[in-house]
Design a protein around this nucleic acid. Structure first.
Lengths: 206, 206, 206, 206
DNA sequence: TATTAAACGAGACGGTACGTCACGTCTTTGC
DNA sequence: GCAAAGACGTGACGTACCGTCTCGTTTAATA
């Protein structure tokens, strides 16, 4: 704050030579994040980001050719706030810890809005869809996969079920987020964790 | 058909007096459906729907004040093509039948595009979110809930787990649809059905 | 003035139904004229016209698809201020009267800027060139042609020379305007009129 | 040619020390000329010149601070192709020869485009206007003035009319060029030359 | 021989304008 | 009173150029 970096009219931020200006990059990401948090996906526009960041539109398009690229970058920047792999010792506790942390992250940081914007964008753009499916999702799912993998090592679940359980659990979280139902519902998280932790794919019913 | 109802310039379809014109309604829904199927969410616009339907924009806004309303109406119209409650006799078979039918429906009718558009819209509009969560989702989930309820009656699953299993399974389907991975993957559907059918929430882990 | 029609934020001027709004048209022409007068060709932009007129850009593009169309319309509107066919009785007096009136018109009304803008535009756009050559120029030259035609009837010049004299005299005026030398130089105008009035194409030189 | 001087990607052309690099200058002028010839005034941009010349924009702005400077330099470079003072012996023949040569020059070399660009630029920029009026025009008119001056010496025209006739004739050529009517119209050129050669300013009408 | 100084290419920068599209509202005319 | 028609102001879209800037390199002239 004291340095007033992202002030629109503070000081002119020109080029620093034939290479990317990190101050501009930071200002744009900051502005995009704030705008998403304030107005959501529908109220988001490159014009407004440029305005707030005190940046030129071509600069934004140069580094983030599509909105999806920008959304991914914004999410990337926030993710430091949520990396936690709980290591609680058993699957159910891990899932509970992870899920509550994730929901809190989505609720209390701008990341939730960013995620929702990315999903929305992916429903209308091939490029965004590819970014979501082939880049964003695999990276975001890594921690959760580790949790399931450790549980399989411990014998809590069948190793062959890891990917399927992953999809189930990720789907659950998406469903909740996309329908805006991620209040801190301890009971729901507990129930779901218990259910997942008790799932077996090899039951007699085959 | 013979009269070329939805043709943009075929015949003038004026007012039929001080009441809603069902031909217009049908033409609008048809046009919206076709446009979504062709261009997807990003390429969808009220202007283009009006153009194709040979309708006035105010007419559209009068009956479907938001895009979400229009998306819901379009989906509603198609759903007749997919109502099937399988009644196969056991949960796993029911799930497999249901899921494959649903994915086929999403893939081969315009309904998949409509669903994706509705979800996207809901990420940027409170009204659309409410429509999605409080109207669309409950209606769409009914058949699946019946499937789980019958399984509980048969003792295949715990009745207390029905809602949670529902969320898990719906989340899985959403995740697949929203990342455009609903090819007819028999193995994946089977595996998931087996896993769900074998889930228990009452395991010792408490 | 008292009604403050072209005020950007005075009162909203919306549509008046499915037809052109003459208030908007007037506001746009007024704004374009003023902008040309203030900033000249280089400082002219459709964006700024829209801003000043309180009009939408699409509205402007709808009625004047190219800048040339707009320039022509602006000139057209001002021309009422200069229609005078002098009828002084002899060619030289007619030319002097006409030329001084024209230069005054160009100097003291926004028309000079408009004319220059149109010529400039025509150097970079086929459409503008066609408008200038095939529409603007013929209309603008009519009065001058009448002057020469009457002189031919009176026997002051050879009827066969009318078109050529016209080109010479129009060229002279263009040259002066385009190099911004149309101060009220009575001597220059007189000299030129005397020269033209005395020109003969049928001299022995064959 | 053999060294492929203006090739954008042939070889890097860096600095040759603390002084102007004539290769760069030539490449820029060549590129500007070609671009004007291809795209005309509207399609001309410093960016594109820099691109084609393989030059940096600051280099261009250093040596030709305004577009007008660049246009003038380009025209200057071509003028060698047209210097001819005809010396045919009588005014009419001189004018015919001069005019046909000039029109051919404007039509068949890039000079016509350059001239038109300079005039257009002058309608929007004080600096360009000054360059056109006070530098370009006087230089370009010199040969024609000589033609008229010799005719005056021979007694074909009144010496006092030289400047006025000059303006008339230059104006005619500008008018033709700026409205793109400089096809090789022998009859028109003849007629105009005859008319000019027969003009007298001292006729009784005084 | 080492240093300085300027010109070079490259290209990023904040801006502005471009011309188009969609938004949601409005008014008129005809059924 | 509804419907078609379509104009309206608004504002975002993605692109092109503007003219300025800072870089790191290259070369010639100077010390």
């Amino acid at each position: 704050m004291s340095e007033d970096d992202e002030a629109p009219r503070g000081r002119r931020r020109g080029s620093i030579g034939a290479r990317r200006n990190p101050e501009t990059e930071a200002a744009v990401l900051m502005a995009a994040q704030a705008l998403l948090a304030e107005k959501g996906y529908a109220g988001f526009s490159i014009d407004e980001v440029a305005r707030r960041a005190g940046a030129g539109k071509p600069t934004i398009y140069r580094w983030w050719p599509t909105k999806a690229d920008l959304f991914v970058a914004v999410y990337e920047q926030d993710k430091a706030a949520f990396v936690a792999d709980p290591h609680a010792g058993d699957l159910k506790s891990d899932l509970i810890a992870y899920t509550r942390a994730l929901w809190t992250f989505w609720r209390d940081s701008p990341a939730g809005c960013t995620f929702r914007a990315l999903v929305a964008e992916a429903q209308g753009s091939k490029a965004a869809l590819a970014a979501l499916r082939d880049k964003f999702l695999p990276e975001r799912v890594r921690t959760l996969r580790n949790i399931f993998a450790r549980a399989a090592v411990r014998g809590e679940i069948d190793a062959a079920d890891v990917e399927a359980l992953l999809e189930l659990y990720v789907g659950f979280n998406w469903l909740r987020m996309l329908t805006d139902r991620i209040a801190d519902d301890k009971a729901a998280v507990d129930r779901m964790a218990r259910l997942i932790a008790g799932a077996r794919g090899d039951r007699k019913a085959g």
